[in-house]
Nucleic acid binder design. Structure first.
Lengths: 119, 119
DNA sequence: CTCTTGTATCGACGGGTGTCGATCTAATCT
DNA sequence: AGATTAGATCGACACCCGTCGATACAAGAG
């Protein structure tokens, strides 16, 4: 099955000494942390839906629309929006009594890539 | 302030009644949950690095290589690999005493998309 | 000014998560 | 067989997270 020439230089070894082979250089620590915290920010169904709503909206969305769209208390909505904001995925502003949220136009390319999955 | 003609049918309202406007149809619940749990599986720097290593490897990677690559106890390594496996991102097999892990060749398109960010 | 209302913040509770040491299992070596 | 070893599993710990009710804050309305 396996070889033809000395190209595949190592099959799964037969209990030689150690099986250990070299492994890719790890990502820069900050890069791994950046990716992980980005993924973590998206690791909740409510926040996924929020991003979906914001991605589909042509204008900033009022918090009251989120509280109407989800079966969750207002503090919880506020909490999720804050987490998205801390992750740099959304920005917000206040107009009168209302607070409006939108996708952060200046989000990183990485973030933009992650959001693309949320159709 | 507000109107001129019925063209931009709503600017940010001026404290009329409610600010609420219609919002996009939510994603199917299972879809949101699928995305969230996928993101959650990737929401840890160690697991991001593991995926990076597996994506760069041309062959299945032995667990002992992971334990060597990270400054973490062996049970912790095993735990993270198990989480990646439960998320459908990797598969594993045993050869002799060793366990080898690789990216799941049959992972979903969604998963593949999420992994693409991990260069 | 006082009342009302939209949001944010706080404190608490239950459940999940990353980590470890200890133990179990299975495969191999002697 | 007994000893060794790679890996998984278990139990425990500290911590984080999603949720809620209560409260604080800010901006209008009356």
């Amino acid at each position: 099955m396996t070889t033809a020439i000395p190209l595949v230089q190592l099959e799964v070894p037969e209990r030689t000494k150690g099986c250990c082979q070299a492994v890719a250089e790890p990502l820069a620590e900050e890069r791994a942390a950046e990716l992980a915290s980005l993924y973590k920010a998206l690791g909740d169904p409510t926040r996924v839906q929020m991003i979906h709503i914001l991605a589909a909206a042509s204008e900033p969305v009022c918090v009251c629309d989120f509280t109407a769209a989800f079966d969750l208390g207002q503090p919880t909505i506020s909490h999720h929006l804050a987490r998205l904001r801390e992750a740099g995925l959304v920005t917000s502003f206040k107009r009168g009594v209302w607070a409006f949220y939108q996708l952060n136009p200046g989000m990183s390319e990485t973030s933009r890539g992650a959001l693309q999955l949320i159709a």
